[in-house]
Amino acid sequence: MPTMNMIQALNSALDVMLTKDPNVLTFGEDVGYFGGVFRVTDGLQKKHGLTRCFDTPIGEAGIVATAIGMGAYGLRPVVEIQFADYIYPAYDQIVSEAARLRYRSAGDFTAPLVIRTPYGGGIFGGQTHSQSPEALFTHVAGLKTVIPSTPYDAKGLLISAIEDDDPVLFLEPKRIYNGPFDGYHDRPVSPWNKFAASDVPEGHYTVPLGKAAVVREGSDVTVLAYGTMVHVALASVADSGLDGEVIDLRTLVPLDIETIVTSVKKTGRCVIVHEATHTSGFGAELSATVQENCFHNLEAPIERVTGWDTPYPHAFEWQYFPGPGRVIEALKRAMEG
């Protein structure tokens, strides 16, 4: 089986789907000839032709709107927004249109599009190349939100997203495109090929939407994470000496409540980790969900480790990024509580 980093796995997913389904096409800023600023669409234009993988004007609203129109025709467009930080001009098209087409037309029209976009910090990108805007989208009825944390999942989830008949926002944690960064920024990051999750089948396979993965079993405390923070959580658990159970949510909407609840009922403790700002972050939804379902099993208050409620500051990357130091403290608090 070939070894792929996350970029290659995403590229492979697009390649497989472009080959399999003539209704699939992909476009976005610098996506065509150049193959995307992160190279996710590298070689696809050459292989599949100019009309199936192409460059667009710099207009995110236009990109998403035309994808909606194509979806209404019956195509399955996969668009790239170059950075999640630049998705906001398309917000109206996503929130008011893509997410509601099915509902408002009683199923007459649908928008089976995928919006891929790199998100998250840890790359010294400053406030406009580092954001984690997932909660702005999970709040929207009718929109699925997916975030992979390994090359294997990235490919399988992207194929599922493309085959899904509803609009899917597919957020790619760019910090772990090349290797699973665990938050220890002063240590080198091993490339993906050192990890089993980089064994990615060449052909078609899916990882289902709406299913979390228990990536480490444990009995002391449940850690809920997604994207880059899955790897931070794993490293933190390892270094805390605790027997933590780490759950990679993989899909935020629809959320795999069952996996979360089963785990928290077992451990009685829960730490939630995300990089996005604290207030109204997805952690608030997770915390409420755990409380609603596991109140009588909880031995300690639920802990949230998140980015601070400030824009992402360029010079303070590692003070802002919720790294292992803060996660380990939260794990300890959860054990004491």
């Binding site: 406030q127 406009t128 360029h314």
Partner: peptide, 10 residues
């Protein structure tokens, strides 16, 4: 001495 206090991309 960055007048923008290190907040912005170069």
């Amino acid at each position: 001495r960055d007048p923008l206090k290190g907040r912005q991309l170069p």
